[in-house]
Nucleic acid binder design. Structure first.
Lengths: 163, 163
DNA sequence: GGTAAAATGTTATAAAGTAACGATTTGGCC
DNA sequence: GGCCAAATCGTTACTTTATAACATTTTACC
């Protein structure tokens, strides 16, 4: 019943996956989602989202800033943090608090949710949306009479490609 | 089988619990554990551990520093961070990365483990050692062929007293 | 095309964490 | 006791991460 979840969708990004397509899909999802919500995906926000998606390694705000700086955009920390705030609200990126860094969201629109697998060798991160983990958390919390609003689950280890 | 876990031990700290005893127990556990390991629980480290245990609200390194400052100890950030590093290694405190703060460990000696319930109303945090959650995480990771080394689980919500 | 709201630019600063090195204390050994 | 090496702690300076406050520009809408 809770055997294999997300047969492909949630899989750890392989070294040889089609990343161009990966980004393109994420961007078109973002456009569609923002259009549907009437949220304004401006050029700056679009660019920040692209930068976050450049690879699957969580990227710090100052790393994003450094990329923007090479592109002639005059920018300072608030520029990036504001764009990230928007993207977080829209569920287009996630913040990994164990790394102080950001990754693209593989299931756009679901702000705050998800669990993350972080490879300590290659640095890549993958999002898991495992209902078994969700349920275990809700259940564990309930056993303490605690009402769950949200959770941060960041799992460190070694990814398939790095084993 | 995975019904109620830690009937009392892991329970969220109640407003009316005997906190003096709570701290005293934690301190004597720490002394015992360090003695057994030959680890040096110095006066400074002892004091930092006490400060972290002053209540069940996660406390930032600079908060600890502020307390030390009122006590005449000349101190700077490294003083606190080094003491915390020792306490983390010994499994006497935990770091909550979603808060950049530290809490006492309710099961001394188990460094790195555990899940945390954090009340968004009163700010208290409780440690859970739920084998169901552990298993769900290992299983979810395994489904992606990912080898787990450690995890950060921080659950935000409302505690029993605050409901 | 004028206006209010949203987004972005800019400056300054807060908060969290670490590097490097010197001084002091501690535990073991003679 | 007295000496030495290692561990601990003090101190200064700095890096990284994040936000406050306010000016300017852009956008949507009438």
């Amino acid at each position: 019943m809770t055997g294999v979840q997300q047969p492909l969708e949630g899989a750890f990004p392989r070294r040889d996956h089609d990343h161009v397509r990966c980004v393109a899909d994420a961007m078109s999802d973002a456009v569609r989602l923002c259009r549907a919500r009437g949220a304004r995906l401006t050029p700056l926000r679009t660019r920040v989202l692209e930068i976050v998606w450049q690879n699957h390694k969580p990227l710090g705000a100052y790393g994003i800033l450094a990329v923007l700086a090479t592109e002639g955009r005059s920018s300072a920390p608030p520029t990036v943090y504001r764009a990230l705030e928007f993207l977080l609200e829209q569920g287009l990126v996630h913040r990994l608090s164990s790394l102080n860094a950001f990754v693209g969201c593989s299931r756009p629109g679901h702000a705050g949710a998800g669990q993350f697998l972080i490879c300590r060798t290659c640095g890549n991160a993958a999002e898991l949306n495992d209902s078994g983990i969700e349920r275990a958390i809700i259940r564990g919390a309930a056993s303490q009479d605690f009402a769950v609003h949200g959770h941060t689950v960041e799992i460190s280890g070694v990814c398939p490609d790095c084993r």
